[in-house]
């Protein structure tokens, strides 16, 4: 485990904690896209099928269970929790996320490393993760104002994949191994989708102003 990989995992974990904190502390999920949360739950369920077949380390197993558990818990809260669900911006969260699921699945059927159930679901999860933030970004753009915790959540979620890319570069030079093309391309796409958000995030931070996304 190198420092970039660790930073990636930690920012990912922090993003989830920030989101849970926001929902728990404010009893509100305003500004959060249920569509994106559902996509993430699907991403983790599809990717971590290997929980049943491979053991890597206690760290990996715990992290996988945390990602699956927290994403399902957030979806449950936004759909079922008596108070939290009232604040859901249903009318702004209209992205047709099923198209992302269908598109990622078709792509995984065409572009994968091996034609096995696990490999196809793995590739599907990588493609879907790359675009899973889109409903969230659209929701933020439509609502204009972004509350503090929601802004931090999206920032850490975006930073995580950028750290993974640095980790792949580091591993390429230190282990002479390239990893997978599918991860590299998808990771670059995923990070690029945040470029606009990162720009406004840093500007608001620099100017000590509230984060606002232009319509």
């Amino acid at each position: 485990m190198n420092i970039f990989r660790l930073a990636g995992d930690l920012t990912h974990l922090i993003s989830i904690l920030v989101l849970l904190l926001k929902i728990y502390a404010t009893k509100s999920c305003s500004g959060i896209s249920l569509k994106t949360q559902e996509l993430y739950a699907l991403v983790f369920l599809a990717r971590y099928l290997d929980l049943f077949t491979d053991f890597v380390s206690v760290y990996n197993t715990v992290m996988k269970l945390v990602f699956i558990g927290s994403s399902l818990a957030i979806v449950w809260c936004m759909r079922m929790h008596r108070i939290v669900k009232r604040s859901y911006n249903r009318e702004l969260d209209t992205f047709r996320h099923y198209f992302l699921v269908a598109g990622s699945f078709v792509l995984a059927l065409v572009v994968h490393e091996k034609f096995t159930l696990q490999e196809i679901f793995w590739a599907f999860s990588i493609y879907l993760e790359a675009v899973a933030i889109l409903p969230q970004l659209v929701l933020l753009q439509r609502s204009g104002n972004v509350d503090n915790l929601t802004g931090q959540y999206v920032f850490f979620l975006g930073a995580y994949r950028a750290f993974y890319i640095l980790n792949w570069i580091y591993r390429y030079f230190t282990e002479q191994r390239f990893g997978r093309w599918i991860s590299w391309i998808s990771g670059l796409v995923q990070t690029a989708l945040y470029a606009d958000f990162f720009y406004y995030y840093f500007m608001s931070w620099k100017n000590n102003a509230k984060l606002q996304l232009p319509a």
Partner: peptide
């Protein structure tokens, strides 16, 4: 092999 594929990543 799985190792070659960075199977230790999340």
């Amino acid at each position: 092999s799985p190792k070659e594929n960075f199977h230790d990543e999340l």
